[in-house]
């Protein structure tokens, strides 16, 4: 007994034994967490999507593909993807604008860091604070207990009628997309600045000798060098657009035709406790995102070291 124990300790002191012990000790917590919070939930999600069950899974019953049928046939659910189109188009505009601002900030400009800082700061701001700021910005106000918001004050001073920005279904989504651009554009600007500045200065000097003007420099040097990043951003915009949650959830609670697929999933699962249906919706979203990710990996395989992605951003902004 005594001898065996000692030999075990001796074995532990060899690098072989140490390696195994260290592997187990170091990976215990992360792997447990991975199993608990990623593997099991993912498995459950697929499983539950074929069931009808409540939050606690009491009396769950198999319904086959019924939940998926509901997701795709009931306009209440799948049609929320329609709103993603607003965000998708918005994020294309956002990329164009960010590129413009980044190129301006990379040219000879006074107070460059000030402008960069101001434009970037909204990205750092708390999402609830941003939402509240814009509830005030677009508020209508009734003149008795709530004050007229910023935009409507300006409109009134210009002699125009106030507008119900956030409760008129025909414009609410545009306002929400505007807020989303306001919040996230700083990140893209900083990223494009980084990409533009990583272009070797030799190329600029050569272009300068050839007498290239600003536009030509952008068209023939800057744009081709950062084209992969731009296309990556555009692909990632799809991911962002289908997972919009926070801003519409806080500002309009998904009312007035502003609900998104994630808000709907959240409502279905957490408020109405239809966990089976919510799981089916989550699986649909998962599949869309996985397809987009695979496309992106396929096209941007070669040098993923220097390809900034928006995935972190999407997660930061919406969940993590």
């Amino acid at each position: 007994m005594q001898k065996k124990k000692r030999s075990f300790w001796q074995w532990l002191k060899t690098y072989e034994g140490q390696k195994i012990l260290t592997t187990i000790l170091f990976l215990l917590v992360p792997v447990t967490c991975l199993i608990l919070f990623t593997v099991i939930p993912a498995g459950n999600m697929v499983l539950f999507s074929f069931q009808e069950r409540d939050r606690y899974g009491l009396d769950a019953k198999w319904v086959g593909l019924e939940n998926y049928k509901t997701v795709f046939s009931n306009p209440d659910y799948f049609m929320t993807f329609k709103n993603s189109i607003y965000y998708l188009i918005g994020s294309f505009a956002q990329q164009a604008l960010a590129l413009l601002l980044a190129s301006i900030l990379c040219s000879k400009i006074k107070l460059r860091n000030f402008f960069k800082g101001v434009l970037f700061f909204p990205y750092m701001m708390n999402g609830v604070a941003v939402s509240l700021i814009f509830m005030r910005f677009f508020a209508l106000g009734d003149g008795i207990v709530t004050q007229t918001g910023t935009v409507n004050t300006i409109l009134q001073q210009l002699g125009m009628d106030p507008v119900k920005f956030l409760s008129d279904p025909s414009i609410a989504n545009y306002c929400l997309v505007f807020i989303s651009i306001w919040r996230y554009i700083g990140f893209d600007i900083v990223m494009y600045i980084g990409a533009i500045q990583s272009i070797s200065s030799d190329i600029y000097e050569a272009a300068d000798l050839d007498g290239a003007n600003g536009w030509q420099r952008f068209r023939y040097i800057v744009f081709p060098s950062i084209k992969p990043i731009i296309s990556l951003q555009l692909i990632l915009a799809i991911k962002g657009a289908v997972s919009v949650f926070e801003i519409p959830y806080i500002i309009t609670e998904g009312k007035f035709g502003t609900s998104t697929f994630v808000i709907k999933t959240h409502e279905t699962g957490m408020v109405f406790q239809k966990v089976g249906l919510a799981s089916a919706m989550a699986v649909v979203l998962l599949i869309i995102i996985i397809i987009v990710t695979l496309i992106q990996k396929h096209f941007f395989k070669e040098s993923d070291e220097d390809k900034p992605s928006k995935k972190k951003k999407a997660q930061n902004g919406e969940v993590a």
């Binding site: 999600m45 997972s243 994630v262 966990v275 995102i289």
Partner: peptide, 12 residues
């Protein structure tokens, strides 16, 4: 994606 997993993470 984190966001779509919460329905089942919640139960864990």
């Amino acid at each position: 994606p984190n966001i779509s997993m919460q329905v089942t993470v919640f139960q864990i």
